[in-house]
């Protein structure tokens, strides 16, 4: 029992730490401070999620690569034979795949944020952890999965002899903005979803509608021109343009799409963060 003979280590930074309930900053600010303090938890939790995904089956990695390919094949076959999109000026399979990857990310990450938030309640009502850490880790996890899925996309670009341009270097920024948008939406739905079980179900229905309202499996041009302006109100329309234009057109998306995407992403993040942190009593009283 040597451990009891020498003084036990104290975590250096922890010594001076004082928690005073009467001097707490605004919840939105406090949560951000704590998230930074617990940043290692975010990293560990993301690594855990990624590890688990690949550990569960040998096919883990292969599956991540195969799934988008198979989806794309099905959709391309269906859509290029049922609807004849000729003379688009770009390869339709790449159009579909790059859009699908974005929507797939958005779909899964937001739903998983709701799931993780509810799942972490058992833990977070017993020991103190900034609850946003799990949501942020989930967003990071799915961003990594998305990045892995870009490999088959690149392969198809090569097969179709699509020219690669420097514009593809802007894709990560588009992904990052999508990540921020998904985090904001996820936090918002999670706050309500932690309390009411029908919120997630409603959101899932909304997601299906959102999928069809966004030009992913059809080119925007097939929509009557008087309705096309409504695309501009759809955050996912701008976001998908950011990550798709470099692939199909070999050029960086127009500035107005970048600005709109930035506005929507930051807006969603601020609203989601605000609701999630100020309504945290919703979580407390569920325990």
């Amino acid at each position: 029992m040597t451990s009891s003979l020498r003084p036990s280590p104290i975590q250096p930074a922890a010594r001076q730490q004082v928690y005073d309930s009467s001097r707490r900053p605004h919840p939105a600010v406090e949560e951000l401070q704590e998230l930074i303090r617990f940043w290692d938890l975010v990293v560990q939790w993301s690594r855990r999620n990624i590890k688990l995904r690949y550990k569960r089956s040998i096919l883990g990695v292969v599956w991540t690569l195969l799934e988008p390919l198979m989806l794309m094949t099905i959709l391309t076959v269906v859509f290029s034979n049922v609807f004849r999109f000729d003379d688009l000026g770009y390869p339709f399979p790449l159009y579909i795949l790059s859009g699908l990857l974005l929507f797939d990310f958005f779909n899964r990450s937001t739903l998983q944020i709701v799931e993780e938030t509810v799942a972490s309640l058992g833990l977070a009502t017993r020991i103190y952890v900034p609850r946003s850490a799990f949501a942020v880790a989930t967003a990071i996890t799915y961003l990594v999965n998305w990045a892995v899925a870009l490999i088959p996309l690149a392969a198809i670009m090569l097969v179709l002899r699509q020219p690669l341009s420097w514009a593809i270097l802007t894709i990560p920024f588009g992904m990052l903005l999508t990540g921020l948008f998904a985090l904001g939406v996820g936090l918002l739905v999670a706050t309500l979803g932690a309390f009411f079980h029908d919120v997630k179900l409603t959101y899932q229905v909304l997601l299906t509608g959102w999928f069809y309202a966004t030009p992913i499996i059809y080119p925007p041009g097939i929509i009557p021109s008087n309705l096309q302006k409504y695309f501009l109100l759809n955050p996912l329309f701008h976001l998908v343009t950011l990550v798709r234009d470099p692939v199909i057109l070999g050029q960086v998306a127009p500035l107005e799409n970048w600005l709109a995407a930035l506005g929507f992403s930051l807006g969603a993040l601020v609203v989601g963060w605000w609701v999630f942190t100020t309504q945290r009593s919703v979580f407390d009283y569920r325990s």
Binding site: S21, R24, L52, R126, I127, Y128
Partner: peptide, 29 residues
Amino acid sequence: VLTPTAGRVVVRGQVAPLLELGAGFHFDL
């Protein structure tokens, strides 16, 4: 974990809760 609706809590230094041993343990890891 819970903020009191009134009154003041001051805790100096690090808190170790022995309430939830193995919090977040995952069986596959």
